[in-house]
């Protein structure tokens, strides 16, 4: 019995130790990228060359907006994700349904929000082999437990994004990847076409964090949709034109942001978040009794509301209505009425 207890304690200690080291090292990817210590470093002195190379000649950005999609939606996955190329079937189905509901929009989902260089966890990185092994086995019981490390790794990355010391660097990196993806899809720079960043869970914080850089870097009006997003007190919210926050009545995860981040506390009146809320730029939407993730979450197509509507369709409908309330480039000045 004692041996069992000792082993359990040792294992617990080992796991805690590993998590602690992961947390401590979590800012390094963004910092070393920014400092130019990694192979994919930004080159500030050669930006002109870099910018020219990164803009695909075939889809050169042009100023006129005619013929372009009415909105560009950028989907950022949750902390369980390992790569933008390997979204879960449920997420893929959700995006497909959303595209059908919003044929006038271009939906982008090829940016992994937890890497400054859009490098998947399973990609070319020091512990890529380990993440690949964990990801391959995550459907098994042991693998499922090990997959908690994926959640933890990405959760720490959300904390990096929300930290005022690391956040600007991390979020500028992710915004740069989003900008590259937008360019590839022909986003017309300075054309005023709305960019809607859409994040699920931890992706919600990244969706807000990248807003200043997309806004300033691309002259884009940025709107955000948070799907059960863990929203922090990121000052980047000041650059979001409007934020729709979907939260199921059984989803308690977003409360983490309410509690852990002082800028979210209602008595810190002058925080960026509270100013944003006072300005009427936040719309809270309750889609139904959704939970955060798993069966009965926002993307579930089997669970239905009392009116028979599948959860995923409710989510799609709410987002469609929110996005369609965004004024077109010619009619700025506030969202159209009726969005939630």
């Amino acid at each position: 019995m004692n041996t069992l207890l000792t082993s359990a304690l040792a294992l617990g200690g080992l796991i805690l130790g590993l998590l602690f080291i992961m947390a401590l090292l979590s800012p390094l990817e963004a910092l070393t990228w920014w400092a130019g210590w990694s192979s994919q470093a930004p080159t500030p002195n050669k930006v002109s060359q870099e910018a020219l190379e990164e803009i695909d000649a075939e889809h050169a950005p042009t100023l006129p907006t005619a013929g372009h999609p009415a909105y560009y939606l950028v989907y950022l996955t949750a902390i369980g994700g390992v790569s933008a190329q390997e979204l879960s079937h449920r997420e893929q189905r959700f995006l497909q349904l959303l595209q059908e509901a919003l044929p006038e929009a271009e939906i982008i989902s090829d940016v992994f929000p937890f890497s400054v260089t859009n490098n998947p966890l399973t990609g070319e990185r020091l512990f890529g082999w380990l993440w690949r092994k964990i990801h391959e086995k995550r459907k098994t019981l042991t693998g499922g437990m090990l997959a908690s490390f994926i959640f933890a790794r990405n959760l720490f990355n959300v904390a990096v994004s929300a930290d005022p010391r690391y956040g600007p660097i991390n979020n500028a990196g992710v915004a740069r990847e989003i900008a590259k993806s937008l360019y590839r899809r022909g986003y017309p720079l300075a054309g005023g076409i709305p960019v809607v960043t859409m994040g699920w869970s931890g992706g919600g914080q990244i969706a807000v964090g990248v807003a200043p850089f997309l806004h300033l870097g691309m002259d884009a009006p940025v709107y955000t949709v948070s799907i059960g997003g863990v929203l922090t007190d990121d000052p980047g919210v000041a650059f979001v034109a409007h934020l729709w926050h979907l939260q199921g009545s059984k989803d308690k995860f977003p409360l983490i942001g309410d509690v852990l981040f002082p800028g979210r506390w209602p008595w810190i009146k002058e925080s960026a978040w509270n100013r944003f809320v006072r300005a009427g730029k936040l719309t809270r939407l309750e889609p139904g009794p959704m939970i955060h993730t798993g069966r009965g979450d926002y993307f579930d197509f089997k669970a239905t509301l009392p009116d028979g509507q599948p959860y995923v369709m409710k989510t799609v409908t709410l987002i469609r209505d929110a996005v369609r309330s965004i004024p077109s480039p010619g009619e700025r000045g506030g969202i159209k009425p009726g969005a939630g």
């Binding site: 910018a51 042009t62 690391y166 017309p188 870097g217």
Partner: peptide, 28 residues
């Protein structure tokens, strides 16, 4: 401060991307 540096970088990128867009616009 990191904030200053990052915003400076983003503004520089924006300017150059705009220049590139305009150049292509003129060329087409």
């Amino acid at each position: 401060d990191p904030d200053d540096l990052v915003f400076e970088y983003v503004r520089a990128q924006r300017l150059l991307a705009l220049q590139a867009a305009l150049k292509r616009e003129e060329g087409s």
